[in-house]
Design a protein around this nucleic acid. Sequence first.
DNA 1: CCTTCCCGAATTTGATCATATTCTTGCGGC
DNA 2: GCCGCAAGAATATGATCAAATTCGGGAAGG
Lengths: 227, 227
Amino acid sequence: MGERALTNKAASGGRAPAHQIVYRALRDRILHGEMAPGQPVTIQGLADSTGAGMTPVREAIRRLTSEGALVFQDNRRVSVPVLDARGAEELIFARQALEPELARRAAATAGPDALARLAAEDAALDRAIARGDVGGYLRHNHGFHAVLYVVARAPVLADLVEGLWLRFGPSLRIVCGRVGTGSLPDRHKEIMDALAAGDGDAAAAAMREDIEQGMAALRAGIAAGEG
Amino acid sequence: MGERALTNKAASGGRAPAHQIVYRALRDRILHGEMAPGQPVTIQGLADSTGAGMTPVREAIRRLTSEGALVFQDNRRVSVPVLDARGAEELIFARQALEPELARRAAATAGPDALARLAAEDAALDRAIARGDVGGYLRHNHGFHAVLYVVARAPVLADLVEGLWLRFGPSLRIVCGRVGTGSLPDRHKEIMDALAAGDGDAAAAAMREDIEQGMAALRAGIAAGEG
DNA sequence: CCTTCCCGAATTTGATCATATTCTTGCGGC
DNA sequence: GCCGCAAGAATATGATCAAATTCGGGAAGG
């Protein structure tokens, strides 16, 4: 999400601005489900907990509201949004509309190093599942897809899809916490095979099934939580 | 983009926060092509021109960078992004992937008032074309689609697509300024007919053609501008 | 006498600004 | 060509003001 500059900056020894640090930290917490849906997010609370001033915190919050990771209530308060069934359906549609294309493009650009990084994320994911580590599952499941987005070299589409993850992250954590990591199969092996073979159609198809399986759990969990 | 609260606030007599006003103003200027691609945007300049302090301006800029309407350069400066051919292709793909679905959903929810608003926007659009008014063309072309997004009652998809408009707005202005408004046909009549008939498939198909026609101009203009 | 409702003060939170600090950059001298 | 200086711009802080929520006291009604 336009963080290339920051990454370069950090890599070259420069110090990142406080608002970037706060943004990153809060973003990761939302993405990995460490904030519950509906939980209020206060500027002063974040400023106290991060040690930053109000202005950088304010900027980080504005950014995340723009991405749908936080919502601006009519009281001017900010909170983690509660995902309803309609919203979940839209997110699933958007993922299915965009991510298979990213997989297709990644099949044309993936090299050995990319495949190795994907395999590493998938292995870490499997270990987290075996351990029953929900946090690790969420982190490495997203990590696998995030590597694929970078490999696809489609920054606009990648930005859009990353925004979708932010919207269902908190709810996915709730759902996974209820059902555990046992019943969460994925199609990552099929995706990697297709990428290795350079078969875009197969990669897109495998991604479609991976999303369908992952989002089916979310859909069911949200329906159960609402009823 | 999550501005429902603000709108209600403003409608009920409350005053909108300065950062919302600045955000809206700058967003509209980008959307309607009043800022050229590559043009720098300085915090102090905006603060001076809008009369607001630096903090609200800062928040507005952060929001727009998150939406891809502005880019954060590695110098910590902010500017209007320059759209290249690859980025344009991604935007076109994303529009084609998402907007037909919005048209399909709008066909199921459009009532007489919605059709009237669409017809009003389209009429204003036709007048702008006849007048050769590029600014009016951009404003009412977006207005037509924006009304449709609201009618579709799919806020997540609408947010995503609105973000796409922000990304190609400045470049579209350049292209339209080069070729004029004469050769810019659209499929708005077909879309409205399909919505009136409640035919989702026809609405989606008409939307696909409308996007194809509008984006073909952008694609050609960008290729010409780069070559 | 107890319960309920309403009103207003205290507290919490958000919004804004003026200012100090840091960073980048461009220029001029060496 | 290189180094340092000065100007412009972004970053960050804390203070100050305004809005909203909460909580507690008191009156009305049962």
